[in-house]
Design a protein around this nucleic acid. Structure first.
Length: 136
DNA sequence: CACGTGACAACTC
DNA sequence: AGAGTTGCCACGT
C-alpha cells in the first residue's frame, strides 16, 4: 500500500461503472433511490449516483429511469423534458405516481440484488443504511 | 417547509 | 500533465 491509496477499488472498476452495474440489476416495475444505490456501492454519496447517471449516453443500456430521489419523486434536472420522459418510462413499466408526483416506496422499492450477486461482483454484503430506513 | 451544509469522479481543454 | 468544468442528492436545523 502506498500513501495515496485512500479507496481500495478493483483495477478496471471505476466508481461509475459499479454504479451502472448496480442500476442494471433493477428490474422493471421497481425503483431505487440515489441513496440506496450509493449505500450499496460503498464509499459513494447519493449525489455521485446522480452525477453518474447524468453522464450516461442516450443509447446506454442502463435503466437510469429507475433511480429517483428519496422523496419518491423524479429529481428535477436541467432538461425538463427528460423529467417527463423519465416519468413516462416508469409509468410504462407500471409505476404509479400520486397527486404529489410521488411513488409509493413501500410498493415499488427495489429490495436490492441477491446476496450472491453482491458477493460475486465485489459489493458489500450489508449496506450501511438507506435514506428511507434512516428516516424511520 | 425552507434553508444551509456535506462531499466527487469523469471529462475536456 | 494538471487545472477547470460539469452534473438527475440527502440530511439536519
Amino acid at each position: 500500500m502506498k500513501t495515496g491509496d485512500r479507496i481500495r477499488r478493483r483495477p478496471g472498476e471505476a466508481t461509475y461503472e459499479r454504479i451502472y452495474a448496480l442500476v442494471r440489476q433493477i428490474p422493471a416495475g421497481y425503483v431505487a433511490s440515489y441513496g440506496q444505490i450509493a449505500a450499496l456501492v460503498g464509499r459513494c454519496t447519493p449525489r455521485m449516483v446522480g452525477y453518474a447517471l447524468a453522464a450516461l449516453p442516450a443509447d446506454s443500456d442502463v435503466p437510469w429511469q429507475r433511480v429517483i430521489n428519496a422523496q419518491g419523486k423524479i429529481s428535477p434536472r436541467a432538461d425538463s423534458q427528460g423529467t417527463a420522459r423519465q416519468r413516462q418510462l416508469l409509468e410504462a413499466e407500471g409505476i404509479r405516481f400520486d397527486a404529489q408526483n410521488r411513488v409509493n416506496w413501500r410498493q415499488v422499492r427495489w429490495p436490492g440484488p441477491e446476496l450472491d450477486w453482491l458477493l460475486a461482483n465485489g459489493f458489500s454484503p450489508e449496506p450501511a443504511w438507506t435514506p428511507e430506513n434512516a428516516k424511520s
